[in-house]
Design a binder for these strands. Structure first.
Length: 414
RNA sequence: CGGGGAUUGGCGCAGUUGGCUAGCGCGCGCGGUUUGGGACCGCGAGGUCGAAGGUUCGAGUCCUUUAUCCCCGACCA
């Protein structure tokens, strides 16, 4: 992509109505546009990041044999009535509306009930199980207070996955597979070492559920870490967990975190409530066990922006960066343009996502934009580099530039 | 939902005890000089001061109501 064709604009100053680091940087760098409190549009650069995150998640969910689908944004009241969760006193984040004929509908804040209802038409026998389904969906939640930029919005993208099983044991096995898949996701996203599988309140079916908590100052959660034993416990359940796990409170370190993922074991209760049953091998009706697994896609993006930045701007990990290379040509010079065009073509040929800054603006502006956008690798082509017969390379995180050859560049970009 | 703060061109801000055609910087357009870390000079476009009502000879400045945004708390399936 050439900068001259990219729909984006960077700013020197952050808007006054944003104080969170992620929103300030993402807006300044042209990744998102704020529509209203807690509601953000994703501009071309931001969308690239979202898609990169989704690709990683998608690959890992496919690895554990989950099937991608996409459910509806509008939902039926009847489905939620079955579990009592249409009630605003039970779920206070509902956005609701009515059809022209008066029929009540809700805007999906979760898809747990609807997917169980839907599955009833597709699953009849124990032989149809297990099955796992996932989607990337825009969830709508009427939060009392949106905050922290894109980390807690009223509209956000979530990957939600649901697995259906014949027994508690089978669900447990899959649940553990999902934990491993999630760990791979967070590693690939570049926040693995700061993300902890955390004991959290489990509700009616299990004593604890698991949250994936990523250390982040701007996060809303507090967890206690036992680094030695690699145990993490949400503040909510600290007393019970300490007792249960036989560890000492004094050995725990208190940290702020953002909940980037969450997995739940629903047992058979939800399927029972909604009336999802299958025929068993003994020709008797049997219960279906449900697991639910979420990753906040846009929140993860916010957390990465929050954690990985410096005074010059964003610093994306390679796997999520909107472009891998920022190619800047300096000076309106035919030779320079020709050399930059050629290198751009070479990078494209090698499938290396490159943002080619072909604008006729001063060097400082190009460098500032490259840094602000957080592109991992920067290449400069100028009269100097042409005379030297090399390229100038700098990594976003490094402080020095170095002269390299095209071959060396391709090796760096692996 | 409780508490605190804010709202003036696209963005960031100033605007004295109410007083003249509402300013500045960035950005934008045109012309020129520049070209290795967001250049400089000149010219120019763009706001009715969040909204509604009120006080006054006169309101961006005072009063009332209201909307929106941010922060703290509460909430977070």
């Amino acid at each position: 992509m050439k900068s001259s064709q990219l729909f984006t604009r960077t700013r020197k100053q952050a808007p006054a109505d944003e104080t969170s680091k992620n929103a300030q940087l993402l807006i300044r760098a042209g990744f998102v546009h704020k529509e209203m409190a807690g509601v953000y549009a994703y501009l071309p650069l931001g969308l690239r990041v979202i898609e990169n995150i989704k690709t990683i998640v998608r690959e890992e969910m496919n690895t554990i044999n989950s099937n991608e689908l996409i459910m509806t944004g509008l939902q039926r009241k009847e489905v939620w009535d079955k579990t009592g969760r249409w009630n605003d006193d039970v779920v206070d984040v509902w956005f609701k509306s009515k059809l022209k004929d008066g029929t009540e509908v809700g805007f999906g804040w979760s898809h747990e009930e609807p997917i169980v209802e839907m599955i009833k038409q597709h699953i009849n026998s124990y032989k149809d199980l297990p099955v796992s389904l996932y989607q990337f969906q825009t969830k709508l939640r009427n939060e009392l207070r949106a905050k922290s930029g894109i980390m807690r919005g009223r509209e956000f993208v979530m990957k939600d996955m649901y697995s259906f099983h014949n027994s508690a044991e089978e669900l447990e096995d899959y649940y553990n597979l999902a934990i491993e898949a999630y760990k791979r996701v967070f590693n690939r996203l570049g926040i693995g070492k700061d993300t902890y599988v955390t004991f959290a309140s489990g509700g009616a079916f299990t004593k604890f559920s698991h949250e994936f908590q990523t250390i982040c100052e701007a996060g809303e959660d507090v967890i206690y870490l036992h680094r030695g034993k690699n145990i993490a416990i949400n503040e909510e359940v600290i007393d019970d967990a300490v007792k249960e796990l036989g560890i000492k409170r004094e050995d725990l370190e208190k940290v702020n975190t953002a909940e980037t993922g969450n997995i739940f074991n629903f047992g058979s209760q939800k399927a029972d409530e909604i009336g999802l049953k299958v025929s068993g091998p003994d020709d008797k009706e049997q219960s279906v066990y449900l697991g639910s697994y979420g990753i906040g896609i846009t929140r993860v993006m916010g957390v990465i922006a929050e954690k990985m930045s410096d005074d010059k701007g964003l610093v994306w990990p390679e796997n999520v960066a909107p472009f891998k290379v920022y190619l800047a040509s300096l000076g309106d010079n035919e030779q320079v343009t020709k050399a930059a065009d050629e290198l751009y073509a070479l990078l494209q040929k090698n499938n290396i996502e490159t943002l080619y800054d072909d604008r006729s603006v001063r060097p400082g502006e190009k460098f500032a934009d490259a840094d602000l956008m957080g592109i991992p690798h920067r290449i400069v082509i100028s009269e100097k580099t042409i005379q030297a017969g090399t390229l100038e390379y700098k990594s976003r995180t490094g402080t020095d530039t170095k002269m390299i050859t095209k071959q060396e560049l391709l090796e760096i970009l692996g």
